[in-house]
């Protein structure tokens, strides 16, 4: 899609806002609709748009295959790690009350970390699936 100059310019203009909106959905999920799943998908959509307009090779330069694979595992590990840290601090698995000085503070921290883990894995998954599908050279 190298000759579609309108698409190139508009997408270049849109991508930062899509990423920003994804981060807003991610970290505003405690207060309004949204959360890790939706944020991850929107975040991935920005990279997929870039890949569609500028080609998979260029998108892979921004986000190499090793990086997506690492993020894929890092999200799940962050989730499980938050749960295990609860055990380490003397609570149950995924018990956030013990993570901070107060129970409510612990819940805030736990939910933030867990949602971030979900968002990371979902974004990495969507990017991986699309790039692997689109990178097929049949």
């Amino acid at each position: 899609m190298n000759n579609h100059s309108i698409l190139r310019v508009v997408s270049k203009f849109m991508i930062p806002f899509i990423l920003l909106f994804a981060l807003y959905v991610q970290f505003h999920g405690d207060f309004g609709p949204g959360g890790g799943f939706q944020a991850g998908v929107i975040f991935a959509a920005a990279f997929i748009l870039y890949g569609l307009i500028y080609g998979i090779e260029n998108a892979r330069k921004v986000l190499p295959a090793t990086a997506t694979r690492l993020l894929l595992a890092a999200g799940v590990l962050l989730y499980v790690g938050t749960g295990l840290f609860g055990i380490f601090m003397g609570g149950n698995f995924l018990d956030y009350n013990v993570l901070a000085a107060t129970a409510v503070g612990g819940q805030h921290l736990g939910i933030l970390l867990v949602e971030f883990g979900v968002g990371t894995t979902v974004a990495a998954t969507m990017v991986t699936i699309f790039f692997v599908f689109a990178g097929q050279d049949f």
Binding site: D30, F31, G35, V80, G83, Y96, Q107
Partner: peptide, 20 residues
């Protein structure tokens, strides 16, 4: 939990195992 969005409380805290 202390956060306004009850859906997020249920999803991430009360039903944390499901979301995992």
């Amino acid at each position: 939990i202390g956060i306004p969005n009850i859906v997020t409380s249920v999803l991430a805290s009360y039903r944390g195992y499901d979301t995992l």
